[in-house]
Design a protein around this nucleic acid. Structure first.
Lengths: 214, 214, 214, 214
DNA sequence: ACATAATCGAGACGGTACGTCCCGTCTTGTG
DNA sequence: CACAAGACGGGACGTACCGTCTCGATTATGT
């Protein structure tokens, strides 16, 4: 179940020597390849077993690392998961094709793809389940993943308002919910069939029908 | 965290002696109060700890019965949870106030209330997390809880179509998603503030703005 | 490395039902076969690895028993070893052939045999090594094994005094040391060759030469 | 529990530069103060924890030295302990006061004192316990410590034979056992009180009573 | 009334996973 | 090169449960 084995890494993967001028602690420095392997294994385990079912031992084994190496860096499971979630941050990349509708469709398609294909998307329902028990973890996830994702939709909407295509007093947050909500909700709870591209177009059109200037 | 303790039940709670004419196995008959206590404890544990964190031992303890009493009835955790989920079925109660908008708002408010106040609503994210691992459990939940809940909204929409208030070729499933989706999505993923009654009205109005005949 | 496997024991080995009139705790009673298997394994491990090298896990494995079964009975290693040592008690069997010399030789031969052939004899140097760290354990061993062993020699000497064959004011404890000491000392510290029967006779004769009435 | 800290040593303690004319390996020469500190720490640890409980890491820490410094000199624990035991050799110092009895008493007193006061005496039972597992270590100890100690007694006895005070065909080894045995045996196994000076006199007298010419 | 037979609470059992600790090895920078 | 410092993989330890099992006590039914 190992994601990245440290021992198998290419020799060239070793980190460069520390830049001069930085005080370094004595002794053998920590191997940064272990950090990445552990974080990656944590995310995989999180997606597979959830926070409750995640064990430090399984993470260490999946990372190909001794248990002590994990505990030396993160004293608790919560701290490890929190740091792992923090790496999920996605850069905000606005796109502007000129067409308001096309940009919204594109943004929602990216939401859809995220939930299916990425590790982060598979982690989402696991964290949702633990939201009552560990609200801070889901909050981290929300800030790192959900908020940027919503922001892509919201920025398109704001542009529509600025360009006079949408109602001037539009509640951006509300409309974002009305676009992202149906896609995300359906994606996660549907029995088998996922949300299709056609359906996303219909969702956008229906919402636009109610908020566009006429 | 025991919900119902068998031992503490009033003597009058005992089931009536079996009706004559029915062949009964010899020996002491099973105590039906144990069944209900175990099912109830299972649902509570499911809401509290999720499927992965649920243990037969904890269920037995919460129900105030011995472990053997649980295993005598359900050999596996999955069978127990499946039976427990099957009891969540909610009766379908349509309401018709004459106003399409008011009925939709009422139906969505019921969705909102369900997710917050009921045990079933707290179980939902737990099962969602296990959907990949145990799809049959979530499917049971969907049939027992989600489908009836959506049906309340869909029936109102169908009535609107029949009465000529809504577009004739309306995609009921799609619009149901667009009404339930934003509420449910926001309710479960929001940081702190829940969905307000006002917002539900806005959601209904926005959707109606795009699908109402004009 | 298992000494006695519980599972493989004959069905007839089950303990008899408790005598009536004794209050019994509820639940499944403890299996006494586990107790004996654990004690036996403890003594074997003690002889093999000493007190410091003895681990509860190894004892459990050697006894063919789960670790919990050991900890349920003895919370600490010290308590387990103490109880194990208490079972080493040997019944005192005086022998009287009429000849003072022959009886002393026989008693010393029994000391010699004990140190070589018995588990208890192999445990002795292990406990001696831990005498500074855990004096109470060695004290238990002394009372259970060493004292009775010395008493066999001392009782013969006392008889010799009573029958007028030995000096009336003989220091029994001292002479016991002078008989047991050379045998035990040589037995444990000698490079390879053990103490022979001939040598034991010489030791007895030499001591008798100094304390016999002449 | 460090015996000698290298780091804390006075600068003057550095070894003198090597005499010219000797071929020396290139690079920094080994610090001889480390050797002595490690050996000393090994003996202390051996007395405190025994062979099984002794770890290279603990030795290094007690010596105030890095672990690598120990492993560079001795690859295994056995090699280190063997070298440490080899340093325990005691010079043989016969004494002759003219009185056979007094010399024997003095020799036995030295045995007694050794077992109590010296590090070597506290190591003795530790090694005894490992005699089955590591016979070569105890053999080293025997040659370095036990044999010289016995020789002091034996030489007095031989002198007694030569001077005609003892039986001509005396078994020196046997009588040595009979003198050293009771003292050592009692010293190590006694519950609390040690062997007194008076008792040593009694032992010597009793043995002499049986072997002296009359 | 009394034997029969299955249920029930309680808890012991073998097994396993957990987090901690520590060992011996390896890898840094400094002298 | 030697040396300290300490990170690393591996493994053992004691704990905590899990699901199964085995007790005595209880409770209905048939004779």
């Amino acid at each position: 179940m190992a994601v990245t084995h440290v021992r198998g890494a290419a020799p060239g993967g070793r980190p460069a020597p520390a830049p001069s001028g930085v005080v370094r602690p004595p002794g053998r420095p920590r191997d940064t390849r272990c950090d990445t392997a552990i974080i990656q294994a944590t995310l995989t385990e999180l997606a597979t077993s959830g926070f409750g079912g995640l064990s430090m031992e399984a993470v260490a084994a999946a990372a190909g690392v001794g248990k002590g190496t994990v505990y030396r860096r993160w004293p608790t499971k919560g701290a490890l998961v929190a740091d792992a979630l923090a790496t999920l941050a996605e850069p905000y990349e606005p796109h502007d094709t000129g067409s308001l509708r096309d940009d919204l469709v594109a943004a929602l398609n990216s939401v859809r793809r995220h939930s299916i294909q990425t590790l982060s998307g598979r982690i989402m329902p696991r964290l949702l389940a633990e939201k009552e028990t560990h609200p801070e973890l889901f909050e981290t996830y929300r800030q790192q993943v959900i908020v940027p994702s919503r922001e892509r939709v919201a920025s398109v909407l704001r542009r529509g308002v600025a360009e006079g295509e949408l109602l001037a007093d539009l509640d951006i947050d509300l409309v974002t919910d009305m676009l992202v909500g149906p896609v995300s909700y359906r994606q996660y709870t549907s029995g088998s069939h996922e949300v299709s591209g056609t359906r996303i177009g219909q969702i956008v059109d229906t919402v636009l029908g109610g908020i566009r200037l006429c």
